[in-house]
Simulated assay, not measured.
Amino acid sequence: MRSAFGQDFAVPVGYLNTASIGIPPALAAEAVERDIRDWAGGRSTAPGYDRWVGEARAAFASLVGVATSDVAEGASASQLVGLVAASLPPGTRVLTAAGDFTSVTFPFAAQRDRGVTTEEVELDDLVAAAEDHDLVAVSAVQSADGRIADLAGLRAVAERGTPVLLDVTQAAGWLPLRLDWADWVVCAGYKWLLSPRGSAWMALSERARSRTVPHAANWYAGEDPWRTVYGLPLRLAADARAYDISPVWLAQVGAAHSLPWLAGLDLAEVSRHVLGLAARFRAELGLGEGASPIVSVPAPGPIPEVMDLLAGAGVRCAQRAGALRFSFHLYNTDEDVRRAVHALRASGSRSAAEAGPVSAAP
């Protein structure tokens, strides 16, 4: 058990895979366990979960710098992005970053039969190309290698009138954010927000709400959900709750314990911690500087073999875009850096030894 920023985590040494799955603080894991016991014992009530949905919603709003009334809850990033994509009129030109996570890009590409076009450009060219498009959709931090989008430039794009959708799944929880200027801000909770899978949120500006159809309209999206269970007419909430889905209860319980704690931290301090660890890791491996806790490392041998060797050494990372992806969160320490560096060097030596001597060309 480790302690970090005032909470305990059952995270093992060498766990550097938060960009895939975040490890919850003990208080969140225990809350979900209690709720499972209540469910199994017939003590749960449907209205009892409204508290957790509300607390998680408010904490997410705080984390991204928007009003609570601007936030809808969902189950995944792609489900929420899909609401936006399905609302676009025919002929809309969408701009995305080449190689971005497909939960951001696929929902738009799937609208091609309706005349919606989706174009990819390099991340660094996104702002310059925006004026020739009707909407920009991009991850604030790239999943594959941790590169950070030009948020200041995208804010200028939005202020000039081109709507911007940001996926902050790889940013919220370690990067201080104030995104009340963006039209849509989408985030899944199971990575850096240390919540169960099945929790996600989307903040919508007033302009975005005028352009987004609540395609998943349901009883829980009503102004008073317990009075919109049966019958017409349509009577949805006046704020962003009109885009809510019926919540994933257990996921919301966990989120309602992780997110308020995260929202109460000094995220500038969290950012310094995780970026410091990533910087030391890069320096030990002779990699260039970076501004993200996600580090992409060329594999010192065939990736499946290297992954097996790292796992055997107690190091957990991911394989992404032909490289090894390591990610450092607030519960990681220098001990994780040392173990990962040692394991990588050992795997490189073993791969070289197994390859045998390289003979000179005839």
Results as ranks from 00 to 15, higher is better:
261 W>R: 11
247 P>Y: 04
268 A>F: 04
245 I>M: 14
277 L>M: 05
276 G>R: 02
269 E>M: 09
273 H>N: 03
274 V>E: 10
275 L>M: 07
240 A>H: 01
276 G>F: 03
247 P>W: 00
250 L>V: 13
263 A>I: 05
243 Y>P: 06
263 A>D: 03
241 R>K: 15
270 V>W: 01
269 E>H: 09
245 I>T: 15
261 W>G: 04
241 R>Y: 13
277 L>A: 01
251 A>K: 02
270 V>R: 01
260 P>E: 00
242 A>V: 08
241 R>P: 06
241 R>F: 09
248 V>M: 14
264 G>W: 09
259 L>W: 06
250 L>I: 13
255 A>K: 03
269 E>A: 14
250 L>S: 15
251 A>D: 01
256 A>G: 10
250 L>W: 08
263 A>R: 03
264 G>K: 14
268 A>N: 13
259 L>V: 06
262 L>F: 13
275 L>K: 08
263 A>P: 02
256 A>S: 15
247 P>N: 08
273 H>K: 05
255 A>P: 03
248 V>P: 04
257 H>M: 10
242 A>Y: 05
251 A>V: 00
258 S>G: 06
245 I>S: 11
271 S>M: 15
267 L>R: 11
248 V>T: 14
277 L>R: 05
258 S>I: 03
274 V>M: 11
256 A>L: 14
246 S>A: 15
240 A>M: 01
257 H>R: 15
254 G>N: 02
256 A>H: 06
270 V>T: 01
271 S>C: 13
276 G>V: 05
260 P>L: 04
248 V>L: 11
275 L>N: 02
262 L>H: 14
264 G>Y: 09
